[in-house]
């Protein structure tokens, strides 16, 4: 086990080293930089700024500097925001995380319940309705559902705020602040859940359909166990096993933000920051963000492998 972990950690370092090279190359080799797009600057001023930002140094040296800083926990300095990248992340990432964790929770809860019932009552009216709803939800783009809900619930009915994280100009604190944020997050969470729940429901439904045809389910019935016990103790656990892989993939998603949802609902999350940085070619921030996602991805994979070991007695590490 410990030798396995050691080996895995070594692989993780190698993968991240390779990823950093790719990420750096991707942004460094793209034509133009933070300075070149700014029309107000003279050629001399641009050269001066490149000197200051270190953009005129050889590629390898720039990569070396970047990596050296990263190893010391410093993911660079945002040129556009004039703040360390890590500080900026800290400011925005938790807003994204709040939306993601709540919607992920509801997505999984709803997907497991509906998927299980749907599989258990395959081809019933309930199952058919669920399948129709899922295909409808999968076919409609997120921006459409988002804008549609804003139009109906926020603009016409005025039940919920149309966007933002707090009411403009509000300086509520304590409980009032929490309630304000909760109000604002309902719509984005609903849209994110709607979007996530359909593919996951289909996934659980098909896993469950596989499992309830297994012979050990027939054995459980032959033992005279209650259907509820058969479904939840014997079937669900086996149907959930393959989903552990997905748990690993959820980790970067929890911190990665959502470009479209955050844009539509004007949510101050990391996705919005990422979009902004793209338009001004703030490469240090973009590189830092991409690297951050890469780190979370390898950690997520490791976590899901560990979880397999806990959940499935057949797996030895």
């Amino acid at each position: 086990m410990s030798s396995y972990l050691l080996r895995r950690l070594l692989y993780m370092v190698l993968i991240l080293a390779a990823a950093s090279l790719f990420i750096f190359a991707l942004y460094a080799l793209m034509p133009g930089d933070f300075v070149s797009g700014n029309l107000r600057l003279s050629a001399e001023r641009k050269a001066e700024l490149r000197e200051i930002f270190g953009l005129n140094k050889p590629l390898l040296e720039r990569y070396g500097t970047w990596m050296n800083q990263a190893l010391h926990g410093n993911f660079g300095f945002s040129l556009a925001q004039q703040k360390p990248v890590v500080t900026l992340f800290n400011e925005y990432v938790w807003n994204s995380f709040l939306l993601a964790i709540v919607s992920t929770f509801f997505t999984w809860l709803i997907a497991v319940i509906i998927g299980v019932i749907s599989a258990y009552k395959q081809y019933s009216i309930f199952d058919t309705l669920v399948m129709i709803f899922i295909f409808a939800a999968m076919s409609i783009p997120s921006f459409f559902i988002g804008l549609f809900l804003i139009k109906v619930l926020a603009v016409d009915l005025k039940w919920l705020p149309p966007g933002g994280m707090t009411t403009t100009g509000s300086n509520a604190t304590g409980i009032a602040y929490i309630r304000e944020v909760l109000d604002h997050m309902i719509l984005p969470v609903v849209v994110m859940t709607l979007l996530g729940v359909d593919s996951l429901t289909r996934y659980f439904r098909s896993n469950m359909l596989d499992v309830i045809r297994q012979e050990y389910i027939r054995t459980a019935r032959a033992k005279g166990l209650k259907e509820r016990v058969i479904l939840y103790r014997h079937a669900l656990r086996n149907a959930l096993l393959p989903a552990i892989t997905l748990v690993g993939f959820e980790l970067p998603g929890l911190f990665g933000g959502s470009l479209i949802i955050e844009k539509i609902f004007n949510w101050p999350g990391i996705g919005q920051l990422y979009m902004q940085s793209f338009t001004v070619r703030d490469y240090p921030l973009l590189m830092g963000f991409t690297m951050f996602i890469a780190i979370l991805t390898v950690i997520g994979t490791l976590i899901s492998d560990m979880l397999y070991r806990v959940a499935d007695p057949r797996i030895k590490l």
Partner: peptide, 10 residues
């Protein structure tokens, strides 16, 4: 089939 008639995770 005794191998597939018992639940693998219990």
């Amino acid at each position: 089939e005794p191998m597939s008639s018992l639940n693998p995770v219990i």
